[in-house]
C-alpha cells in the first residue's frame, strides 16, 4: 500500500471525516491542489467546492462551503465552514446585533450600578437559599412521618 496521510475534515457542527488517505484534492485560494503524503506545510483559505479523498481505489467526496486548509507533512486538516459566508452578509448580521443591543438597552445607563447588581444577585441567592432551607426542613419532617 502506498504512503498515507491523516485527513480530518471538521465543521463547527460536526466531524465530517477522519481517516487515512493516499491523496487529497481541495479547492484552495488559487485553484485546486492535490496533496500527497509528506507535502510541505501549507496554509490556505478554501473556496466553496468539492474535497476529494482518494484512498486505494476508493474516492470520497465532501462539499465544503469554504473554510481553511492546513497541511503538515503527516496530517491534513480542513476546517470547513458550516454556514454560508459573505462579507456583506456578516456586516448585516453585525448591524443587527448592534441594533438589538441599542433597543434592549435604551433606558439603561452605560455605567454598571454595582450596588444594584449586587442587591439583585443577593436577592436571587436568597431565594435559592430559602428554597434549599425549605427542602431541608421538609426532608427532616419527611423522616419523622
Amino acid at each position: 500500500m502506498a504512503a498515507t496521510i491523516q485527513v480530518d475534515i471538521v465543521s463547527a457542527e460536526q466531524q465530517l471525516f477522519s481517516g487515512k488517505a493516499n491523496e487529497v484534492f481541495a479547492l484552495a485560494a488559487e485553484g485546486e491542489v492535490g496533496i500527497l503524503p509528506h507535502h510541505t506545510q501549507f496554509l490556505s483559505t478554501l473556496k466553496p467546492g468539492l474535497v476529494r479523498i482518494v484512498s486505494g481505489d476508493e474516492e470520497e467526496h465532501f462539499f465544503v462551503a469554504g473554510g481553511v486548509l492546513e497541511v503538515q507533512p503527516e496530517v491534513v486538516t480542513i476546517l470547513a465552514d458550516s454556514a454560508l459566508r459573505a462579507e456583506d452578509l456578516d456586516e448585516a448580521r453585525a448591524l443587527e446585533a448592534k441594533q438589538r443591543a441599542e433597543e434592549a438597552m435604551q433606558k439603561a445607563q452605560s455605567e454598571i450600578d454595582f450596588a444594584k447588581a449586587e442587591s439583585e444577585l443577593a436577592e436571587a441567592v436568597a431565594q435559592l437559599e430559602a428554597i434549599t432551607k425549605l427542602r431541608e426542613r421538609l426532608s427532616k419532617q419527611g423522616l419523622t412521618h
Partner: peptide
C-alpha cells in the same frame, strides 16, 4: 444588564435549543 446597566455593544437572543453559528 438592562437592570444594572453596562456598556452593551451587541446582543443576540432566541437561539433556540440547537444554536446555529
Amino acid at each position: 444588564f438592562k437592570h444594572v446597566g453596562g456598556d452593551v455593544v451587541a446582543s443576540a437572543v432566541d437561539l433556540g435549543d440547537a444554536p446555529h453559528l
